[in-house]
Measured scan of single mutants.
Amino acid sequence: GLTEEQKQEIREAFDLFDTDGSGTIDAKELKVAMRALGFEPKKEEIKKMISEIDKDGSGTIDFEEFLTMMTA
């Protein structure tokens, strides 16, 4: 499992990506986040990433899903 410290770091990354503070990361926010990390993702790639992570089919990534992605 994760230490509380690791969870906190992932939470901070999540909050950075969640620019509108909605508690979820949408495609637009993910794209901005990827760019910040030096990637140039295409729209299809973003969609694919979200569909792989987005277990509940909401079209957005919540913290639990993000946590799973970061620790996979």
Results as ranks from 00 to 15, higher is better:
R11D: 01
S51P: 02
K7S: 04
T71M: 12
D20P: 01
L2H: 05
S22H: 04
D26N: 09
Q6W: 14
A13Y: 09
G23F: 03
A72P: 07
L2T: 04
D26C: 11
A13R: 05
R11E: 01
K48N: 07
I50W: 08
E44A: 08
V32H: 15
D56S: 11
E29G: 10
D56I: 08
E12I: 13
G57E: 10
T60F: 06
G38I: 02
I53K: 04
K31I: 15
T3P: 03
I53T: 04
T71I: 12
T19P: 05
K43A: 14
I46V: 07
F63A: 01
A72G: 07
M49Y: 06
D54F: 11
S58Q: 06
E52R: 13
D20I: 03
I53F: 15
G59M: 08
T71S: 10
A33N: 01
L30Y: 02
E40A: 11
D26S: 11
R35H: 06
V32A: 15
E65Y: 10
L37M: 10
G1A: 09
I46T: 04
K7Y: 12
G1M: 10
E64L: 10
F63T: 01
S51V: 04
F66A: 00
P41M: 15
E45A: 08
E52V: 12
I10A: 07
K42M: 10
G1K: 10
D62H: 08
F17H: 04
P41I: 15
Q8W: 11
F14V: 00
R11S: 01
D62G: 08
G23Q: 03
K55Y: 05
E65V: 10
E12F: 13
I10S: 02
T19C: 12
L16A: 07
G21T: 03
D54R: 05
K48G: 05
D54L: 13
D26I: 02
G23I: 01
T24Y: 12
E29W: 14
D56P: 04
E29L: 14
K42P: 07
D54Q: 06
G57C: 12
I61R: 00
F17M: 09
L67Y: 08
E40C: 15
F66K: 00
I25V: 03
R11Q: 04
Q6P: 01
F66C: 01
L67N: 01
I10C: 11
I25G: 00
I53N: 07
K7W: 09
K55L: 09
K55Q: 09
Q6G: 04
I53S: 06
L37W: 05
K47T: 11
P41V: 15
Q8M: 11
A33G: 04
T19Q: 08
R35A: 09
G21S: 05
M70D: 00
T68L: 14
I61L: 07
S51H: 08
E29I: 11
M70R: 01
E64V: 06
M34D: 00
F63S: 01
F14H: 00
E64F: 10
L30A: 03
M69F: 15
A36D: 02
K31V: 15
T60A: 07
I61K: 01
E40Y: 15
L67V: 07
T68R: 12
F17R: 03
T71A: 13
M34Q: 01
E29M: 14
K28P: 03
I50G: 03
F17Q: 03
Q8K: 11
E4R: 11
S51A: 13
D18P: 01
K43L: 14
G38K: 02
I61N: 00
E12M: 15
R11N: 01
S58I: 04
S58K: 12
Q8G: 05
E12P: 01
A27W: 12
I61H: 00
I61C: 01
F66I: 03
G21C: 11
L16I: 07
I46L: 11
L30G: 00
E4Y: 09
D18S: 04
G38P: 01
